[in-house]
Design a binder for these strands. Sequence first.
DNA 1: ATATTATGGATATCTAATGTCCATAATAAA
DNA 2: TTTATTATGGACATTAGATATCCATAATAT
Lengths: 161, 161
Amino acid sequence: MQFSKSTDYALHALIHLAQAEDRNNIGVKELSAILSVSESYLSKIMSKLRKDGIVRAVSGVKGGYELAKTAEEITFLEVIQAIEGRQQMFECSNLNSKQHQLLAELSNTEPKPKATDRDECLVKKVMDGAEQHLHQYLREHTIQFVLDQATKRCNYSINKK
Amino acid sequence: MQFSKSTDYALHALIHLAQAEDRNNIGVKELSAILSVSESYLSKIMSKLRKDGIVRAVSGVKGGYELAKTAEEITFLEVIQAIEGRQQMFECSNLNSKQHQLLAELSNTEPKPKATDRDECLVKKVMDGAEQHLHQYLREHTIQFVLDQATKRCNYSINKK
DNA sequence: ATATTATGGATATCTAATGTCCATAATAAA
DNA sequence: TTTATTATGGACATTAGATATCCATAATAT
């Protein structure tokens, strides 16, 4: 139950892009040097961020990446989901639960959800609750939040002198 | 970022043990049949639960497993940690952060923590916060909670008739 | 003594994460 | 237009961890 290294790299890369908001685009070459990752690996990560609309990319000589929205708008949750995908944290082996999920997926089409969730596994319900709880926290924390904290810390250092 | 199948099996096994609290010990043979898992695999899982003091085991003919505490006392968190281990959800590649953690571990001995955490990575701080948040939820939900929910559901069914 | 059950070591298999390489497309600058 | 630079995506290799099985041994009720 661990977040992947890729998620770690993605978050740190976004922090760097946010801090260099005024500058031109930043290429994978520069980012990979800062993060101490190989260019080829970081490329895959940045591609995922682009596909999910978190960064913009431009090819060519002065190309590279930049944020596609403000740092305020980029939540930890969407970064994590861009990298790790959107599968649920807990997949229940319980048959009732699996049937329930299957029905829910099928009902994405026409005949309405029906909300007969009395048969879903209660263990899964607790775990889904945990996931929602975690997501809420991750939605409330943005890239901007980290930048703000860094500023505070810096001020503190200055005052100290 | 998913919980393992083992965790799923462990939780369901504990629910069954809790529901059969009055009966004798329940063996892996019976549990594995209920959960549709192999005996050999479930054995490993039950061993982990025993090592962490969640269940008691007794060998021999009428042997098997029983809860080592009340269902009220068994939290989702401790079950998950018994199975998945206690590593942190987020390991930071950031060098400052790694150094910080190393120092923290070393200072487990004599010369006191020192609490100079100004250098720890802010990304990691957010992620550690998320983990604490999740843990709090998982600590607040026990095996007993699931049993209670099941009772409610059952009552509802009866009333319906 | 016998049958039954848990325990732990060794090992095999499978899957996902990690990581690299290369051909191709896009673009700025010369 | 040519060149250098950068992103993109496919294919592939490597590694680590989860999943799964088997077996020898210990414990225990009958």
